[in-house]
């Protein structure tokens, strides 16, 4: 008995060691990256790395004084969050229909939805520009929200559908004999049962949206609608050269909202991603 217990605690100790080392390997680049944001510019472009930074708030000052960083961040958050909400509102009923009802061309619709994802975005860039120009939404977060939603809708639908396919049909049969209608079944049975899938899809959509560059650049022409991803590009050109420390800082700030979201829903997400992995 005693030897068994020691065996287990030894293995536990080993497990922590391995996991801890791996965590350091994963986190080191991020920490390094963060320190870049707090170094003076001169320290970044030296031929040999300086491991211990001489702290400086140069980049931070640059951002705060010359840069409406708060408004960029807000644009990002509003456009991304809004697009995810739109996606979920549209994708959940669509996925339910695709997973449950037999109708002619069901498989074709599935493929059609997915195929929107296969197209090179540049092909639709010009039409989209004129579309938003004509309805007067150019240079607004609303346009970004709609574009992000459109880009991700197919993927979100597809992921949620695959989760819904896994819910046993008997569950719905039971709900129906208990007296529930379609909408009640969707709300009370289906959505809770595939919540991990919905969350996974939402996070993936949010990551894609927050990183979106091409359409954002196209639609946002002033700081009114700039998002973090496009604003970043401002540091790469111009007479000042590439401002690495500012880029690092902004990248980090852009990454923080996603990090917070992921940590909050970590439990569901890890289950969601692995569940998705074994499914087709």
């Amino acid at each position: 008995m005693a030897s068994v217990r020691r065996d287990r605690s030894e293995r536990l100790w080993l497990r922590y060691l391995i996991l801890g080392s791996w965590a350091i390997v994963c986190l080191a680049p991020m920490l390094w990256f963060l320190t870049i944001g707090f170094r003076p510019r001169t320290e970044i472009i030296v031929p040999h790395p300086i491991y211990w930074p001489s702290w400086s708030l140069d980049a931070w000052r640059l951002l705060v004084s010359d840069w409406p960083i708060a408004s960029y961040l807000r644009n990002s958050v509003v456009a991304v969050a809004g697009s995810v909400v739109i996606d979920l509102v549209l994708a959940i009923p669509a996925a339910y229909a695709l997973s449950r009802y037999e109708f002619r061309g069901r498989e074709d619709i599935g493929f059609y939805i997915l195929s929107t994802r296969m197209m090179a975005p540049a092909i639709v860039a010009v039409p989209i520009f004129f579309l938003f120009k004509n309805i007067g939404l150019l240079d607004t977060v609303w346009a970004l929200m709609l574009v992000y939603a459109a880009i991700n809708l197919s993927l979100v639908t597809w992921i949620i559908r695959s989760y819904m396919l896994d819910i046993p049909k008997e569950l719905e049969d039971a709900a129906r004999t208990d007296g529930a209608g379609d909408l009640t079944i969707l709300r009370e049975i289906i959505i809770p049962a595939c919540l991990p899938g919905i969350i996974t899809a939402a996070v993936i959509a949010a990551i894609f949206a927050i990183n979106e560059f091409l359409f954002t650049l196209l639609i946002a022409s002033t700081s009114k609608a700039y998002t973090m991803s496009v604003a970043l590009a401002n540091f790469t050109g111009g007479s000042d050269g590439i401002i690495y420390n500012a880029i690092a800082l902004v990248s980090f700030l852009a990454f923080v909202p996603i990090l917070i979201v992921v940590i909050l829903i970590q439990k569901h997400l890890s289950r969601g991603l692995t569940m998705g992995a074994v499914k087709g």
């Binding site: 046993p168 008997e170 569950l171 049969d173 039971a174 709900a175 129906r176 004999t177 208990d178 007296g179 529930a180 209608g181 009370e188 049975i189 809770p192 049962a193 919540l195």
Partner: peptide, 20 residues
């Protein structure tokens, strides 16, 4: 429709609602 037949059923596979 099933919901309008006043029937209660015990399913072979139980069919309990997992989130409740």
């Amino acid at each position: 429709d099933a919901r309008d037949r006043d029937v209660a059923m015990v399913f072979q596979g139980y069919a309990l609602y997992p989130n409740m």
